[in-house]
Nucleic acid binder design. Structure first.
Lengths: 223, 223
DNA sequence: TTATTTAAGATAGTAATACTATTATATAAT
DNA sequence: ATTATATAATAGTATTACTATCTTAAATAA
């Protein structure tokens, strides 16, 4: 079975919906490729324009600035992750198993077709790990937040918090625990690859290590 | 009682030691003020030069680029934090109490004189919360890490991990747990102020909330 | 005291970036 | 056939992250 999912990304993130044109779609896809390759700081609108055989002016007709492009990508990811959580938890009654599935989803690469039209899931995963905090660690966070651009992240957090509360209704910090496992899955994966002394990785794959670490601590907390 | 502490910051972070001159010291102090006020992205060498009544050329004689200035500030913080942990844990035999002290230190503002010569501790604290991850979430992390610029962070991690292992020698992930409580103290404080829906803050102060959350979380894991 | 070293200040300049504005052209809808 | 709309092409601005050079002031050594 194979299917595609589409999400309505918050209109206030873009000036013109990139989903509605070929250049627009190419723009987002190539942004993912470039941010993965160069890192967000070295990624520029000029480089993106060159990559899509177009001009800076065209890019600026879709996005106000490069921060908006990152936000767009992350919004897509948060929506996709929430969809995946909902999908994979369907018909699972065992709440322990539900939590295990969530941790697995958060710590492993997104599955998905690697077609030419699709976003590169491996790249997207790396962007989430290395760049996602740059969407909110900005001085004008309050202004940006007014546009509800973090709603998909909050929704994902809410959904996970709900499962935590169903598993243990007495646990006092379901939302904070939810964001902690999300953020921890990012920084432990980053550290285990780049600054391994900050972790306890051994020979196993970093995603597997992070999965084990988070599963271990999650159940110690909620049990 | 009042005393000052000095740390030998890794020589590879600066070109000329800012501690050895008045402009140098002023440069670091004003960088803290400006990064706090503007955020790291809006902070520029030009603005810093103007602030210290000097020129960009002078700043560049001390630091290669603005990333190095952030690294210098964070290195100072990590050294200071490790010193504080060592100092506050002196003569404490109860390991549970030791862990409580560590969590308190990580989640509360640094104490310290607010003299004109000292770094502004309130600002420094905010920089640690909002900007510290930008020291390592960069594409050239591998290159940068070769200069041992993250040694103070690793040392802090090692020291906390040691206390965790002394408390519970069977716990398998002391280093990862150590970095997790450090990083969690940052993002939960940030979220509780700026994106409170991602947390469970109520009316209490965000540092107090974060302290309670992490203490609860830590002891459920290591007990 | 004089000579030498050293750091800071003043000034200028470059390449890259994040935009904005304008016009011409191609395409699609009416 | 006309109109609306999007894109491409081009140009331009302000800011930034640097680099280079030259002068001046101060500290140090002979």
């Amino acid at each position: 079975m194979n299917f595609q999912v589409k999400f309505d990304i918050n209109e206030r993130i873009y000036l013109r919906n990139p989903e509605n044109s070929e250049v627009g779609k190419l723009m987002v896809k190539k942004s993912i490729d470039l941010i993965y390759q160069l890192g967000f700081e070295q990624f520029t609108i000029k480089k993106l324009a060159t990559e899509i055989n177009s001009t800076e002016a065209t890019v600026y007709r879709y996005f106000e600035n490069k921060h908006s492009i990152l936000l767009y990508i992350l919004n897509w990811y948060w929506c996709y992750m929430e969809f995946l959580v909902a999908y994979k938890l369907e018909n699972i009654t065992d709440k322990k198993e539900s939590l295990r599935i969530i941790v697995h989803l958060l710590t492993h690469e997104l599955a998905g077709s690697e077609s030419h039209f699709d976003y590169n899931k491996k790249y997207l995963n790396q962007i989430v790990i290395s760049e996602s905090s740059k969407t909110y660690l900005v001085k004008d966070i309050t202004e940006i937040n007014k546009n509800e651009v973090f709603k998909p992240y909050k929704d994902l957090c809410t959904r996970i918090a709900k499962v935590i509360s169903e598993y243990n209704p007495n646990y006092k910090y379901p939302r904070s625990l939810s964001t902690t496992i999300i953020e921890t899955s990012h920084h432990q994966q980053f550290f285990s690859v780049n600054l391994p002394k900050l972790t306890d990785v051994n020979s196993i794959k970093n995603s597997e290590f992070t999965n084990q670490f988070i599963e271990d601590f999650l159940f110690k907390i909620v049990d």
